[in-house]
Design a protein around this nucleic acid. Structure first.
Lengths: 156, 156
DNA sequence: TCCATATCTTACGTTAACGGTAGATTCAGT
DNA sequence: ACTGAATCTACCGTTAACGTAAGATATGGA
């Protein structure tokens, strides 16, 4: 007989909480079996499915959006051209990811530049417009690196 | 005199809402000036600062975390070694971004693979264990591509 | 001055994703 | 059979980031 886990074991295994697991079930994302007494039992497949869900959540996907991925097969069952619908759904996710990756890259560059500027600061106590400190910003900085707006424009 | 905008204009300009802008002010992220009557006035610098904030929010940063970036200068003012504290804070953000980017890359690969498998489906109406359809999963699929757990394991 | 908008403050409502608690029931070891 | 630990259901609480509505005031053009 296949191994089955109780909810507490699954929570420990995946580093999540019992409440979270039950919540996903309420939301229709998981359907464990039960003992006669009502205790939930999770198979290996249940566990790996849950793991997938947790990974997606970690990456900022909403439960709603995960539900959509899960319903892909239902769409797929109905016919030939619906396989393309499924592909389209996944393509949508891919675009979403590409956009996010692009924005992250932009942010990374910004922070790196901001760090370079801040790194030159030797603890000046001057106003941001002062010329005493090599790090204190000219407008040029503030314009080229968005983040510096946040850092230097303290009285806006 | 420099140009100043009213809150509605700023909202239109940046594609956000009046409520959001006021909320950021409540949270101490923005300090526009006022007319004698109390109407908020935003300078170009205010606008670009707000734009930065909106970009960060779009990328999943919390207002709390953005407040931290904003307070960097205050930390910087106190002395020399605090410049390193600032750098450390920015480094933290960089690591956060790197981790996210890595996970996104993983997800991208997964979805691509899942798409390839689904693409082979010719509209089968079989159970997932069936052999009639080249896309219907053997366990091997389910294990190598996490997403397929979600797609095919519909009754878990 | 008059009036149509726009903005103001105050305050309660909303949504997602859980957290926490109570009181009853089940499980598993002895 | 007994018992401590785990699980069950049901329900209310929480947090972030706004939405929405009311009633009062400000703005800017004819």
């Amino acid at each position: 007989m296949a191994i089955e886990y109780k909810i507490g074991e699954v929570a420990d295994l995946l580093g999540t909480t019992i409440r979270t697991i039950r919540y996903y079930e309420e939301e229709g994302l998981l359907r464990p079996s039960r003992t006669d007494g009502g205790t939930r039992l999770y198979s290996e497949r249940h566990v790996s499915r849950l793991k997938s869900i947790l990974h997606l959540v970690e990456n900022g996907f909403s439960l709603e959006s995960i539900r959509l991925i899960g319903s892909v097969r239902e769409t797929c069952k109905t016919g030939d051209e619906s396989s393309r619908k499924v592909s389209a759904q996944l393509d949508g996710k891919l675009k979403e990811i590409a956009a996010r990756a692009h924005e992250l890259e932009r942010l990374k560059k910004e922070i790196t530049q901001a760090k370079a500027v801040v790194g030159k600061c030797r603890g000046c106590r001057n106003k941001p417009t002062s010329k005493g400190c090599p790090a204190c910003p000219a407008k040029t900085h503030a314009n080229s690196v968005e983040l510096l707006n946040l850092i230097w424009d303290q009285d806006s």
